[in-house]
Design a protein around this nucleic acid. Structure first.
Lengths: 148, 148
DNA sequence: GGCAATTAAATTGTGCGCAATTTAATTTTA
DNA sequence: TAAAATTAAATTGCGCACAATTTAATTGCC
């Protein structure tokens, strides 16, 4: 009996946006256990990454860097504050603005974070060159939707 | 005066995973207003996409396709049920299993969804070939983390 | 057949993510 | 300069996403 063509027309698997969504979820899950040893979630880690670069930083500027609004950042920053990784102070120049700065513990966490980054990099099954291509495509992908 | 090199060492912007996360969030936001006219959120739309392919389907199988567990799907399916897009029935073969099927309204929604897909495709600033490359890289990216 | 282990959904609890609103401070402008 | 408009955070409300637990049905094993 002739083998029947069972190629299922798989609409979902032709959706690039689903693949993006899945890739993002999957890698964030991979970060999970690594970051847990630092006491951070992935979004909290992203905030720390930004602060390790530049500090202090207003909530507004943090949001601009991470594409997150105060609705997300306010409770998240409260958690980082409770963990004694960051401090909040009202700006003297502009009393509306809240400046986020690192505590000593928060600054120290950066060292441990290198290990997380290298673990994740090791898990990515793409050469440096391919990975660069990927990030460039992601950039133009994102930019296309942001500038509409 | 010689222009100073102000190239900021931007750690965040060197993180492929952040770019992935940002791209995913951004495109889901782009879907938002389009899907709103169908009365769906993006995750709800994904469930419908799967059901438009194959139906009825157990919650477990839906979860396997979308990489979502019952903790996410149960309340989501209840919402789709409230909107009269899907129906739930306990399987007769296995009373533990709940089969999800489409209503007439749910099936009809598929036509409108073509417009959403073409709008999104139009927003993606990548040629077909580049887009194919991207999805293939995303596949190997995801697969690398899933099979660890 | 009967008990243990497994499986499928649902539920509970926590943490984003974002729209919309609120509050307070600052800037614009009439 | 006083009122209106804008801006920065916080808050509220809703919908995922996932870990962990619970409940009920099925399967495995003796």
């Amino acid at each position: 009996m002739k083998k029947q063509q069972v190629q299922e027309f798989n609409y979902l698997d032709q959706q690039p946006c689903f693949k993006l969504y899945l890739a993002s979820k999957t890698v964030i899950q991979a970060y999970g256990p690594l970051l847990k040893s630092l006491g951070l979630t992935y979004p909290q880690y992203l905030v720390m990454v930004v602060l390790w670069e530049t500090e202090p930083l207003a909530v507004k500027d943090l949001g601009a860097r991470l594409h997150l609004d105060s609705g997300t950042l306010s409770p998240l920053l409260k958690k980082l504050q409770d963990k004694k990784f960051v401090e909040k102070d009202r700006s003297k120049d502009d009393e509306r603005s809240v400046l986020i700065s690192l505590t000593a513990a928060g600054r120290k966490l950066k060292e441990k974070a290198y290990g997380v980054q290298s673990d994740i990099r090791a898990g990515i099954c793409l050469h440096d060159e391919k990975l660069k291509e990927l990030t460039e495509m992601l950039d133009s992908f994102t930019e296309g939707f942001l500038n509409r």
